[in-house]
């Protein structure tokens, strides 16, 4: 806890109350919806019926909704698709971004300026939806998972942030490695990357979250709903309110318990949410640095 500087007047009780109230309200606004959704997803049919909808106070808990989701079927497949696209996509994006960022980090290298320009110009205009769609179609990538990866694989913003970071590494370090006979690939792998774990983690998170959350690429390029990623499933079953389990089906004849459709819907939300919630705290501490470098040098 930092201390108050001596010149600063003591806060009034009124001021403190207002501030505390505001901050609590803000934090609640962020957390409460997520709490309600998670709670409802693990509630029994009875608890959901008693609450008349979303459950705000825990009563009966059950994991039936998740058993239903992961017992094979649409959601299981969508989770696999999204996971696969996220893992492969992040590997491709992060790998190519690191390589290009290092490749462009020496201002005197061959073709440095035109290549850098090639990336920077993409800030000024976007190609437009229709030509992009037609290109993907011409390339035969409709209904291919690569259509979710390749068109958005390189973010010029991430590349510029990374490059700015690499350029801050003292030239002497790299020089001495070169004198010892290391090539650039070796220098990048052995010296530069180990010095850049934080920025790599942040950029990796940016890419991974982008792939996990990708929605519109899939709307455009994936017509076959057997190949839908999770976000499209989320839209269909939660936002558009379709029921995953038909109302006519009895779930378990022995107990007569049917995981309530609302719990199943909320469980889909949680499944979409959880990977972000898990990775987020690990990367959070590096945010300010990464974003500020990007903002200042981008």
């Amino acid at each position: 806890m930092s201390t108050r500087p001596t010149w600063q007047e003591r806060p009034t009780l009124f001021g403190l109350t207002i501030k505390g109230f505001l901050l609590t309200l803000i934090v609640l606004c962020m957390i409460y919806p997520i709490y309600v959704v998670i709670l409802t997803s693990v509630s029994t049919a009875q608890a959901v019926t008693e609450a008349g909808g979303l459950v705000t106070r825990p009563s009966g808990l059950s994991l039936d909704a998740y058993r239903e989701l992961f017992g094979g079927g649409v959601v299981t497949r969508a989770v696999l698709v999204s996971t696969g696209v996220t893992v492969v996509g992040t590997a491709v994006s992060l790998g190519l971004t690191i390589l290009a960022a290092y490749g462009l980090s020496r201002t005197n290298s061959l073709f440095h300026r035109p290549l850098l320009f090639l990336f920077l110009l993409t800030f000024l205009f976007t190609p437009g939806m229709i030509p992009s769609y037609l290109l993907v179609r011409e390339l035969g990538l409709i209904d291919s998972y690569w259509s979710l990866i390749l068109p958005s694989a390189i973010s010029a913003f991430n590349l510029v942030v990374m490059r700015a970071f690499f350029m801050n590494i003292p030239g002497e370090v790299i020089d001495s490695a070169r004198i010892d006979g290391a090539g650039d690939f070796r220098i990048l792998g052995r010296i530069v990357l180990p010095m850049s774990k934080g920025v790599t983690a942040v950029i990796g998170l940016f890419y991974a979250v982008g792939y996990w959350n990708a929605f519109f690429n899939a709307v455009l390029y994936i017509n076959d709903n057997a190949k839908w990623p999770l976000q499209l499933i989320l839209r269909q079953y939660v936002q558009q309110g379709m029921n995953l389990v038909p109302n006519t089906r009895t779930y378990d004849t022995a107990t007569g318990a049917l995981p309530p459709n609302l719990a199943i819907k909320m469980a889909i939300v949680v499944v979409a949410l959880v990977p972000v919630l898990i990775i987020y705290p690990f990367v959070q501490k590096h945010f300010t640095k990464g974003v500020i470098i990007g903002a200042v040098k981008g």
Binding site: A100, F125, P131, S132, L135, A153, I154, F185
Partner: peptide, 25 residues
Amino acid sequence: DWQLLAMTLPAAGLVLVFHYVPTLG
């Protein structure tokens, strides 16, 4: 500098194909 170029080209290629080509499109 050939190694630096080799590092930059894959990303540059992707940007060319998926940004510049549709822009011309």
